[in-house]
């Protein structure tokens, strides 16, 4: 009976160590993040950068390629999310307008491409 109890405790201990390795140690060894995992405020600022550049070059295709940095999500949706987040945290309206213009350009681009 005692052997079974100790065997069961050993299994639990092994599970705990396994979880610690998988959730604790390994993620720290590989701390490189993918751009799509950036936090919403950083993603929004990146979208704003793309919108700023778009204002100057008026190249919606280039803006689309730049937004692809943030992952495979639909670029229109990315900009929409950035606008919503920017609105929630109080981005300056000049910045909001830039993102809205980018959104409009991407929406116009979408049917063609």
């Amino acid at each position: 009976m005692a052997r079974r109890i100790f065997f069961f405790i050993a299994i639990l201990l092994g599970i705990a160590i396994g979880l610690g390795i998988g959730w604790g140690i390994l993620p720290r060894l590989n701390e490189t993040a993918q751009p799509e995992t950036l936090r919403a405020d950083y993603r929004t600022d990146y979208v704003l950068m793309v919108a700023e550049a778009y204002r100057s070059d008026q190249n919606a295709s280039l803006a689309q390629r730049r937004l692809a940095f943030l992952g495979e999500t639909d670029p229109v949706r990315m900009v929409q999310e950035a606008i919503v987040f920017g609105g929630q945290v109080g981005y300056a309206s000049a910045d909001m307008e830039l993102m809205l213009r980018l959104l409009q350009a991407l929406q116009n681009l979408k049917p063609q491409g």
Partner: peptide, 19 residues
């Protein structure tokens, strides 16, 4: 040995779940 076997089985299960 049976303790070590239990530990290894647990380690395998824990790693499988977490990874």
């Amino acid at each position: 040995w049976f303790l070590l076997t239990g530990l290894l089985i647990g380690l395998l299960l824990g790693s499988l779940y977490s990874m």
